[in-house]
């Protein structure tokens, strides 16, 4: 869906998406890194289980909700990637305790 422009010279940052290593760039938000990865990053909604991807990328739509380092329902479009970050694609609603 998206690809990186050649002029992007930012250093790489390795994150893990459902345990799989993904190369992101320093300064990417989690959502941008997921959309750039080419992997299936669709979450499923809490109500019907319908698949969704980020819609607004500016913190208002909450369609980028994702589990980051064990904490559920984070807005992936507002969180910058960090080395070794563990991302889990959220299926259904947030679980109690995470």
């Amino acid at each position: 869906m998206f690809r990186r422009s050649e002029q992007d010279k930012r250093p790489q940052v390795q994150i893990f998406v459902d345990g799989v290593a993904v190369a992101a760039r320093q300064g990417d938000t989690v959502s941008a890194a997921l959309l750039a990865s080419g992997q299936d990053a669709r979450r499923s909604t809490a109500v019907s289980g319908a698949p969704r991807l980020p819609y607004c990328m500016m913190g208002v739509c909450f369609d980028c909700l994702v589990t980051i380092d064990g904490v559920g329902n984070r807005q992936g479009c507002l969180v910058p990637v960090a080395e070794g970050m563990q991302i889990e694609i959220q299926k259904g609603k947030r679980e109690i305790g995470r």
Binding site: R4, D8, D28, L53, M57
Partner: peptide
Amino acid sequence: PGVMTAGAAQTMLKSSALV
């Protein structure tokens, strides 16, 4: 999935040089 706002695409373009 695959439907986004134009602003979303612009955000990715400016902050991560994604097109």
